[in-house]
Amino acid sequence: MATIQKGKTITLRGSAQIVVEFFNYGINSILFQRGLYPPEDFRMVKKYGLNLLLTSDDGVQAYLKAILSQLDKWIVAKKISRLVMVISSKDTREVLERWSFDIQLEQSDDRKENFCETKKSKTEKEINSQIAAVMRQITASVSFLPMLEDPCTFNILAYTDKDAEVPAEWIDSDARLITKNAEQVKLRSFSTSVHKVDALVAYRLGDD
């Protein structure tokens, strides 16, 4: 898990690994918190100073692995701008929630070295505490999000640049927007000093 060489500045690759790891735990947390899979399917691990849950469903694990490996490639190639987890009703295919994570490069390539030298204050501990805050918010968001009455499933969309390399398993999708009564709540963000990840959850408020 150690993605950073201690005492050294974070590289693009290291940052990508941090981000990917965050997505792994974040998506698993959302899956658990929103009750998309039964709670028995999750096992608890300690991460970021928190007890987090990871799924033990093989299908989901495989899917997430595929997603995250590709995500890592795209982050390193700087071709991805956003990752969205869409929760939709199984019956109607209606989108009920969108967990959207904006991935922004915090610095341009040519200035990276200088930047890191001047601002190497971001230690692993700080990053982890920031990520832990986001995780806690994800956990806490259950209190304001509407109950998911219908059985639901999820999907992950990647917003990539036009010129990104796309493997054959990936296909184009529509934006899967929430059609009506959309509300949105901005969550905390974290930064690896290379990447900044903004979290936001949009959800559909009751039917009326």
Binding site: A66, K162, W170, D174, A202
Partner: peptide, 17 residues
């Protein structure tokens, strides 16, 4: 926040499976 995007520069992808 709703998730709109510029189709000229961005494409949305999903894993087929």
């Amino acid at each position: 926040g709703r998730g709109e995007y510029d189709p000229a520069t961005t494409r949305i992808l999903q894993l087929a499976d």
